[in-house]
Each structure stands twice: as C-alpha cells, then as structure tokens.
C-alpha cells in the first residue's frame, strides 16, 4: 500500500473508532438516564418491594418485555420515523443513538432491577425500623448497597450497546460497524474487516475490564 493510502486508512479507522466510542458512550449515558429510574421503579413497586404497586409494575413489565423482544436490527428500522423526528436524519452516528437508547434502556432497567433486588431484605427492614422513608431507603440503602452490582451491570450494558452500534452500520449508521460492512462486506476488503474486528475486540475488552475492576474495588462485602 502506498503511504497516502495507509494514512487515509489509518485516518478512517481512527475516525470510525471515535464514532463507535461516541455512539456507545452517549447512548449508554442517555439510556441510563432512562433505565436507572425505570429499574428503581420496577424494584420498588414489585410485589415484595418496599412500595408494592401492582398496576405500575405490570404496565412497566409489559412495555419492557415488548421492547426487549424486538430484535435490534428490526427495531433499528422500525423506529426510523422517531429517529428522523428527533435528529432530522436516519443516517450517521448521531441518528444511531436514538434506536440504541430505545433498545438499551429497557435492558438497563432490568439490570438495575435485578441488582437492587439483591440487596438484603433484612438491611432494608432495619432501615425502615430506624424511621427511613421509602425515598431514603432507595437513595441511602438500596442504591449504595447495590453499587457493585450496578457497576457490573454498567460494564455489561456498555459492551452490549457497543455491539448493537456496530449493527447500525447496515442502515447507514457510522463507526467501525459501518466500515466493516461498507468495505469488508460490500468491497471484499478482508484486511479492513479484520482490522475492525480486532479494534472492536480490544475496545470491548478494555471497557469490560475497567468496569469490572471498578465494580470489584467498590465492593466491601
């Protein structure tokens, strides 16, 4: 390969990597903004929660199960009108963020719910016996006590969202996934395909490792 081509290639890969990170992190952050409160509501309103509320719990469960059962690739196409309404386009990495949030917020809500459910019921009872209101139990007991589980969940969520983001390349999204499809698949450039695969593996491993380490370090049990 001539030098200029190598430079162009490196530039493209670097840009793709940045786009992938942008899509992943932006979607994760916004999906958590939705999924975290939803997960809390799920954990609190369930039958054995601290403020059981049947209709809230059941309604949320139905919505979340519906969203979770649509395969991401199909959801990606199905929500295009919403995507266009919000971002003005269905192409590029910013447009990918919308379906990523819609797909991952319910997933995150489930992760959060299951972490919060693992908090010892006795500890919650003790807090109630000390005169804590449900709000205080949520913010001072349930969330802090499940911090390691929440962080582990975040590490899982971020890697899942990253793999979703690569799929968006098929319908004109950006990032490494788009490069792999446009060059590796449509132009038979197996070398470029291999490089994107290696880069994706490295990014996933780094995110996973960092997340798990932080989770482990925060665990005092």
């Amino acid at each position: 390969m001539p030098d200029t081509e190598v430079m162009k290639f490196t530039q493209m890969m670097g840009f793709g990597l940045l786009e992938t990170l942008y899509m992943t992190l932006a979607s994760t952050a916004m999906a958590y903004a939705l999924g975290l409160p939803l997960g809390v509501v799920l954990a609190v309103t369930r039958l054995d929660g601290i403020a059981p509320c049947r209709w809230v719990s059941q309604t949320l469960n139905v919505i979340i199960n519906l969203l979770r059962s649509v395969p991401f690739l199909i959801l990606l196409i199905a929500v295009q009108p919403i995507t266009r309404a919000i971002t003005g386009t269905t192409l590029g990495s910013s447009a990918t963020v919308v379906p990523l949030i819609i797909a991952s917020a319910p997933f995150i809500a489930r992760l959060v719910e299951s972490s919060l459910n693992e908090v010892d019921k006795g500890v919650i009872e003790a807090a109630a016996a000390m005169g804590s209101s449900p709000m205080r139990i949520i913010f001072r007991v349930m969330i802090p006590e499940s911090k390691p589980g929440l962080l582990t969940g975040a590490a899982i969520a971020v890697t899942t969202i990253l793999s979703y983001s690569a799929m968006a390349g098929i319908v004109g999204g950006g990032g490494l996934g788009a490069i792999a499809i446009n060059y590796g698949l449509y132009r038979y450039r197996e070398d470029i395909m291999m490089v994107t695969v290696v880069l994706l593996v490295i990014v996933v491993q780094v995110l996973q490792e960092v997340g798990m380490r932080i989770a482990k370090k925060s665990d005092k049990r």
């Binding site: 006795g122 500890v123 009872e125 003790a126 000390m130 005169g131 007991v141 006590e145």
Partner: peptide, 21 residues
C-alpha cells in the same frame, strides 16, 4: 410514624448492617 420509630431501636438475628458502610 417515621418519627416515632426513631424512639424504638431494633436489632436482628442477622445484624443487618449496611455492608458497603
């Protein structure tokens, strides 16, 4: 009631301490 509970301490078989504190 929350107020009144502060005048009633309670301890348990499993101690029930906050494990992250």
């Amino acid at each position: 009631l929350y107020e009144a509970r502060r005048s009633i301490g309670m301890i348990f078989q499993q101690f029930n301490l906050l494990k992250q504190r």
